[in-house]
Deep mutational scan, measured.
Amino acid sequence: PKCKGCFKAIVAGDQNVEYKGTVWHKDCFTCSNCKQVIGTGSFFPKGEDFYCVTCHETKF
């Protein structure tokens, strides 16, 4: 599969995040607002966007 963030291949051994059939490298899975890496931490999906806890609390 290819990462939705950088469009490069995800190979065995890469740390990745999967959500609803889409996959990202862990470092490519970032907050849509502040761009900080969410990685495998908590996040809030809103449509096609993903927000870290801090930005979600501030924005919504």
Rank of each mutant, 00 (worst) to 15 (best):
G39M: 06
C34A: 00
T30P: 14
G21D: 13
P1N: 15
V23S: 10
P1S: 15
E57V: 05
F29K: 10
C31Q: 01
Q36E: 02
I10R: 10
K26S: 15
T58H: 03
K46V: 12
F29C: 13
T40H: 13
F44K: 03
G47E: 12
C52K: 02
D27K: 13
D49I: 15
V53A: 08
V17A: 11
V17S: 07
C55T: 01
S32V: 10
F29N: 07
D27I: 13
Q36V: 08
K46H: 07
A12R: 08
E18Q: 12
K26I: 02
S32C: 09
T22G: 12
S32L: 07
F44L: 13
I10D: 15
T54V: 10
F29D: 01
Y51I: 05
K26Q: 11
K59V: 14
P45W: 03
C34F: 01
A9Q: 07
T22M: 09
S32W: 12
Q15S: 10
K4Y: 15
Q15M: 06
C28M: 00
C3R: 03
E48V: 06
V37K: 14
T58K: 13
A9H: 03
K4F: 15
K8G: 09
G39Q: 09
K2L: 15
N16H: 02
W24T: 13
G39R: 06
C3F: 02
D14K: 05
V37T: 08
T30L: 12
V17F: 09
H56V: 05
K20Q: 10
V53F: 10
E57T: 09
A12H: 10
V37F: 04
G13Q: 09
E18H: 15
S32H: 08
S42L: 07
T58V: 05
T58N: 05
E57A: 10
C6D: 00
N16S: 07
I10K: 01
F29S: 03
A12M: 14
K2P: 08
T30I: 14
Y51V: 13
G13P: 09
F50A: 07
T58F: 01
D49N: 10
K46P: 00
K35P: 13
C6W: 00
G39S: 11
K8V: 07
K20I: 05
C6E: 00
V23T: 12
C52F: 00
G41H: 02
T54C: 11
C52G: 01
Y19V: 14
V37P: 11
D14G: 11
K59A: 12
S42I: 11
K35D: 10
A12T: 14
V17N: 01
P45A: 09
K35V: 05
C55A: 00
G5S: 06
P45R: 07
F60I: 04
K59E: 07
A9E: 10
V17H: 10
Q15R: 12
G41P: 07
H56C: 06
G5F: 04
D49P: 03
F7D: 00
K59F: 06
K59H: 10
E48A: 08
F7N: 05
F7V: 11
S42N: 03
T22N: 15
C34H: 07
C28R: 01
Q36I: 12
I10V: 07
Y51Q: 05
K46W: 05
P45Q: 02
V17L: 06
C55M: 00
D27W: 08
G5D: 14
G13E: 11
H25T: 02
K46L: 12
S42K: 12
G21T: 09
C6S: 01
G21H: 04
G5N: 14
P45L: 03
V37H: 11
F50I: 04
C6G: 01
G5H: 07
A9Y: 01
A9W: 02
G21R: 13
P45S: 05
K20P: 05
F43T: 09
K20R: 11
N16P: 10
T30M: 14
G5W: 06
V11Y: 03
K2G: 15
V53M: 09
P45H: 06
G5A: 13
C34N: 00
H25V: 00
G47N: 06
D14M: 05
V11W: 07
T58R: 11
G13S: 08
A12E: 05
D27P: 13
Q15F: 08
G39I: 02
Y51F: 10
F7R: 11
A12Q: 12
N16C: 02
T54N: 03
A9F: 03
V53W: 07
D27H: 05
T40V: 06
G47Q: 10
C6N: 00
T40L: 10
K8Q: 10
P1F: 15
G13Y: 09
K4I: 15
E18A: 02
K2D: 15
P45E: 05
G5P: 01
G47S: 06
G41T: 04
V23N: 04
Q15K: 11
E18W: 10
P45Y: 02
I10M: 10
E57K: 12
F44S: 13
T58L: 07
K35T: 09
H56M: 07
V11F: 07
A12I: 04
T40A: 05
D27G: 11
G41C: 04
Q15T: 11
T22R: 12
K46R: 13
T22V: 12
G41F: 04
T22D: 06
D49G: 11
K20Y: 14
G13D: 13
I38N: 09
F44Q: 14
D14W: 07
K8R: 04
C31G: 00
K59L: 13
T54Q: 15
T58Y: 08
F29R: 07
P1E: 15
C55N: 01
S42M: 03
K2F: 15
P45V: 06
T30R: 14
T30W: 15
H25E: 03
K26D: 12
V53P: 08
E48F: 03
Y19S: 13
A9L: 03
K8S: 09
D14H: 04
G41R: 05
F29E: 01
N16I: 04
K35E: 04
C6R: 00
D49H: 15
I38F: 06
F7T: 10
K8L: 07
C31M: 03
V37N: 06
G47F: 02
A12D: 14
F29Q: 04
D14Q: 14
C34I: 00
S42C: 01
Q15D: 14
G21S: 10
F43C: 09
C34G: 00
K4N: 03
K59N: 03
F7C: 13
C3V: 04
E57Q: 05
H25S: 01
N16M: 07
Y19I: 15
N16Q: 12
K35R: 13
T54R: 13
G41E: 07
C34L: 00
D49E: 14
V17I: 09
E48Y: 02
G5V: 05
K46A: 14
C28A: 00
S32K: 13
G47P: 05
F43I: 05
K46S: 06
T54M: 08
C55K: 01
Y51R: 06
T40N: 02
K4C: 11
E18G: 11
C52W: 00
K26W: 04
W24R: 10
F29V: 12
N33D: 08
G21L: 11
V37R: 14
D49A: 05
D49M: 11
V17T: 10
C34V: 00
I38V: 11
F50V: 07
C28L: 01
V11N: 04
W24Y: 02
K26C: 14
E57C: 05
K20D: 13
K4D: 07
Y51T: 06
V11R: 11
K46G: 06
V53R: 09
N16F: 03
S32I: 05
V37S: 13
P1G: 15
T54H: 13
S32Y: 09
Y51N: 09
V17M: 14
S42F: 03
V37I: 11
V11M: 09
A12Y: 04
E18F: 08
C6M: 00
K59R: 12
A9D: 10
F29I: 01
I38A: 02
K8W: 06
V11K: 07
D49F: 14
T40D: 11
V17D: 06
G13V: 13
W24V: 05
T54K: 04
Y19H: 09
G39F: 06
P45N: 02
V11D: 09
C52H: 07
K8C: 05
